[in-house]
Design a protein around this nucleic acid. Structure first.
Lengths: 173, 173
DNA sequence: ATTATATGTATGCAGTCTGCATATGAGTCA
DNA sequence: TGACTCATATGCAGACTGCATACATATAAT
């Protein structure tokens, strides 16, 4: 019979379960603590990361259609966390940026997500955590082509946690 | 300055990104290949795992309200993959089970999810995969109390991949 | 036995999120 | 100037969800 150590089917299954757990906790925290839908959070993060983005650009990075993104951004504007300005270079495009309140929400949003993932790692021994880091990096590096899926996968990442000296394993290739 | 090997903040962030990637791919596959919403898939899996469940029981295990679960199950019944029968013991409760077609869909559903996670692990060296297994197990064992959240976290798991000789790290405690 | 309470289902209603089709305004190029 | 492309915005419809409520059945207390 197969031994546990050789059964990657089991590894794959609990990896899937872990993904469910993380998404449930993160999105639940966003909803209850900040009243943010998953895509509203993603739009906020992307506008924070690249101020001046057009709606079209944000749509591409969060993986929604243009029209859906228009609505998401509209709600963020109504709420006072995002500001629109017609771009100078191209009067068609909106130039999106966060208000002061928006930056505060973005900060809280990252804290909530980091709280979840930090808690999960908190009990691991250093060597175990490093092994996990290497495994996850290898997976992301190997399995995610730079491009649209890569952007969408990173839609709610905390950039400050993927900058120098570390690099996002998705964006190095 | 902190070295990469010691920076659990980075580990936490890419763990979150991996969760997003997995959920996007799995739910995307279910939607495009099987026309199943995430919760419809979860209900199907739970009814498959515990034939004879009431709607109330399924609701608890997938993390939806009762009324939302009634609708999800209704659609599955209309589609011909789930069958309702008033239970003999308690005429209030429905006794849910999968039709033959439903069992086929449940099988395909697991295959689609397993395909995603297997692909992600495919490039890892055996030792790396085992390290990942141990890390994930340690996280799930330590951070998920048996109870409602545990059930909900396992709502789309492939039970055949968490049975003997391995055990679901969430359910052993 | 009868009545009060609890449990399981079902449905009306409203709100959110999403995509498609389409309209409008602005830039680009022949 | 005119044809075409691009970014935005909006009408419309559909899916999904929760709350409040209604109804049927079971359970327990009197």
């Amino acid at each position: 019979m197969a031994e546990a150590a050789h059964d990657s089917a089991h590894t794959a299954n609990i990896l899937g379960a872990l993904a469910v757990l993380i998404q449930d906790r993160v999105e639940g925290a966003w909803q209850s603590a900040l009243d943010l839908s998953p895509m509203a959070a993603a739009a906020l993060v992307q506008i924070d990361n690249e101020p001046g983005s057009s709606i079209e650009a944000v749509a591409g990075r969060i993986g929604l259609t243009h029209s859906a993104t228009v609505r998401v951004v509209d709600k963020l504007v109504e709420r006072g966390v995002v500001e629109k300005d017609r771009a100078r270079k191209d009067a068609r495009a909106q130039s999106l940026k966060l208000s002061k309140a928006g930056k505060r929400v973005a900060q809280q949003l990252h804290e909530a997500r980091n709280q979840v993932t930090d808690d999960l790692l908190a009990g691991l021994a250093p060597a175990q955590r490093q092994a996990l880091e290497q495994g996850i990096s290898a997976i992301l590096y190997r399995c995610v082509e730079p491009g649209r899926e890569a952007d969408v996968t990173c839609r709610v990442c905390d950039d400050r946690r993927c900058s120098s000296p570390e690099i996002c394993p998705i964006r190095v290739a």
